[in-house]
Design a protein around this nucleic acid. Structure first.
Length: 422
RNA sequence: GGAGGGAUGGCAGAGUGGUUGAAUGCACCAGUCUUGAAAACUGGAAUGUCCGAAAGGGCAUCGCGAGUUCGAAUCUCGCUCCCUCCGCCA
């Protein structure tokens, strides 16, 4: 959500922002709706002031003086309830529109129509070259009995999976590595709820737009697709102390996604599943663009370091306007090399929002000048599994069908190579 | 699932129909004292919104939403959440 005052004063910016994001938004319609809202509000307030004065008089006068005032109040009340009805209708439309105002993308966000137009800003490592024909991760994990998709589908339905044997130890080794990496950087680890109330998803910007990608319970709760929701909502309706900022959270949660718009994409394997696990970096910082940018680069770098520790070739792209969500000001995706697809696949997504989320969640702090301000918020994946296993397994496969364990994980996994079980 | 109690400012906590936007304490800010700090004392200060250059003023806000009333933190109804006890359960 943006500030209505800001919207009124920056209609052109809003229009340009929406255009860059390839979103339809009629800012003039919102402003004329807001004019109506303001006029009605003013009318009602004037009458209420009148009423308040009369009420005081009534309290202080005797029965004879009181009668005519009471009579006058009746007409006033009639007028008021009519205006209030009108305001209610206007407010309903107003609120619906306010939830659809896109945040303005940063000037540095590339123009573009789709993720094909994302711009590479950094790359690391050499694309893995094999002296043999590499397998895709599905054949790899099945031949080594590291996952079972058949039973997964039987038990959990489409996109179901089981992880087995060293897929589990590698996964846990990764989690340990992530924890260590981020605790050393001062992040506070949290295990956060995935089953959350509606308002948390409105607050983080996943509703109303993302309704079809969310699972819902019979109690009207939702299953969140990211730990960002639980982590951010932890601070909802709070007035933070400025000295607490920036808050740096490493949130762990299971994540659920219906993948409603991706029915034909990645239908097999570990890339796109309905239920997965994610460590998420979340930062809440003071309301300054410079701070947001600085932390955005920090979040990005944190994850790049992690991929480098895992020796995975990757690149970082700046997402183009059309590839940004409603609330995002700028986004980087980190994409690791997946040999079988001869392409990079997204493993991390790093965005900042300015006060778009904190306004909706009502997360504020008192600034040194005594003013209340909405904080800024950012987040980035720390590690999402099992997806991360795809580049790890594929890039480390060997001619005999075994998989080298990345050096950084060997101690925990307890072996250097994953072989076919006996 | 059953029974009961509760939700008030950053926090704790008074307040049961008429200058209550709200006592008091803590925390906070400024000042006095002090070499400095602490303590003590004095004073300030809720949030949002609208009008205004400002000073200042209007309106709203005591979990949320309706209602009763000229007037609601206070009365009624619905909802949400929290706590206690019992039951069930990992």
């Amino acid at each position: 959500m943006l500030d209505i005052k800001f919207i009124r004063e920056n209609k052109d910016l809003i229009r340009m922002g929406a255009k860059k994001k390839r979103l339809e938004f009629d800012v003039d319609k919102l402003v004329s709706l807001d004019d109506k809202r303001r006029n009605l509000q003013t009318d009602i307030e004037a009458r209420r002031a009148e009423q308040n004065v009369a009420s005081q008089k009534i309290a202080q006068s005797n029965d004879i003086d009181r009668a005519p005032i009471l009579e006058a109040m009746k007409t006033l009340k009639g007028e008021m309830s009519k205006l209030e009805e009108k305001l209610k209708d206007v407010l309903k439309d107003w609120q619906t529109m306010m939830l659809q105002v896109p945040n303005i993308p940063d000037i540095s966000v590339p123009e573009g129509e789709s993720d094909a137009d994302n711009k590479e800003v950094h790359s690391w490592g050499e694309k893995t070259v094999f002296p043999f024909t590499p397998k895709n991760h599905i054949d790899l994990v099945e031949s080594l009995d590291l996952a079972d998709f058949e039973r997964g589908a039987e038990v959990a339905g489409f996109r179901g999976y089981y992880l087995k044997r060293d897929a589990v130890t590698v996964n846990l080794a990764l989690w340990g590595m992530v924890l260590k990496h981020f605790i050393a950087k001062g992040y506070v680890p949290m295990m956060v709820p995935s089953m959350v109330r509606k308002q948390t998803l409105y607050g983080t910007g996943y509703l109303p737009q993302g309704e079809e990608d969310l699972y819902k319970t019979q109690d009207e709760d939702y299953l969140s697709g990211t730990g960002e929701v639980g982590a951010m909502s932890y601070f909802a309706d709070k007035v933070l102390d400025k000295s607490q900022l920036p808050l740096k959270i490493l949130a762990f949660s299971t994540c659920f996604r219906r993948e409603a718009g991706s029915h034909s994409k990645d239908t097999k394997g570990l890339i796109r599943v309905h239920e997965f696990f994610k460590w998420e970096q979340v930062i809440i910082c003071e309301a300054s663009h410079e701070e947001s940018v600085r932390h955005h680069e920090e979040l990005r770098r944190n994850s790049e370091e992690l991929l480098e520790k895992l020796e995975l070739p990757y690149h970082t792209v700046a997402n183009c306007g059309a590839d940004l969500g409603l609330g995002q000001v700028k986004k980087y995706d980190l994409e690791a090399w997946v040999p079988s697809q001869n392409t990079f696949r997204e493993t991390h997504s790093c965005s900042y929002f300015h006060d778009f989320q904190t306004r909706r969640l009502n997360i504020r702090y008192k600034d040194t000048d005594g003013k209340m301000r909405f904080a800024h918020s950012l987040n980035n994946t720390a590690l999402a599994s099992p997806r991360i296993l795809v580049p790890i397994f594929e890039n480390n496969q060997q001619a005999d069908g075994s998989i080298k364990v990345p050096v950084a994980l060997r101690e925990f996994v307890g072996k250097d190579v994953i072989n076919r079980p006996e």
